[in-house]
Amino acid sequence: MKLTLHVWRQKNAQDRGRMFRYEVPGVNEHMSFLEMLDVLNERLIEKGEDPIAFDHDCREGICGMCGMMINGKAHGGFKGTTVCQLHMRHFKDGDELYLEPWRAAAFPVIKDLAVNRSSFDRIIAAGGFISVPTGSAPDGNAIPVRKLDADLAMDAAACIGCGACVAACPNSAAALFVGAKISHLAHLPQGQPERDRRALAMIRQMNREGFANCSNIGECEAACPKEIKLEVIAQSNADYIKAAFTERPETAIGGAG
């Protein structure tokens, strides 16, 4: 099949960038979307043109590195599918596709379709963890975990941090990403001691990174390749509100003993 692509080209973070048009003949329906771009890039290199930069790594839908908007839909908009697992059989001859990078102030473009998502790492660094120094853990079976809680924690923990939720959100909110981590750890007994601190720290960091608010629209849930539910946002809201209203100054007094 033959496709027409309109691709956002931007040399670097400083460049203004604009859409370029490419004709891609000879697309095989068994190719993945990224393989189609590989083929286009090979042709561009042979012609002496700069290949299109896009992030990708595992190409099996789990590392979260790939992602772009295809016709205004994150990862192309197919249920539970990252762009690396999207196959060309979903498209037909003559289709025109618009490829754009994730758009958010907190995800500045590095080049073409590749963006910088370090803001997500900083949100995790702020509180998305359980403090457990190596070697200090009790036996794995010491604390039973209700199966339902383990399953709900796993549902939320499936997040791959790709950023599709931010990209799809009309507000550029990171609520689904943040909610997924808060919900994952809030469902486990191991996550309880730091539950309040975590919610406060992560949500404050989320704000500092320049992500806007959630307005319960649901585009993120639809775009999420791991099908994480809006429910995690409610959970993180609840945790944050509770933590914010019960927060008190720390009582520990410093000094040597």
Binding site: A137, G140, R146, K147, Q190
Partner: peptide, 18 residues
Amino acid sequence: DQCVAQGVPFAREYGGLL
């Protein structure tokens, strides 16, 4: 043990054990 303590959601049985 370490991973459980970190919050890795390993599969559980109904009794709550791994």
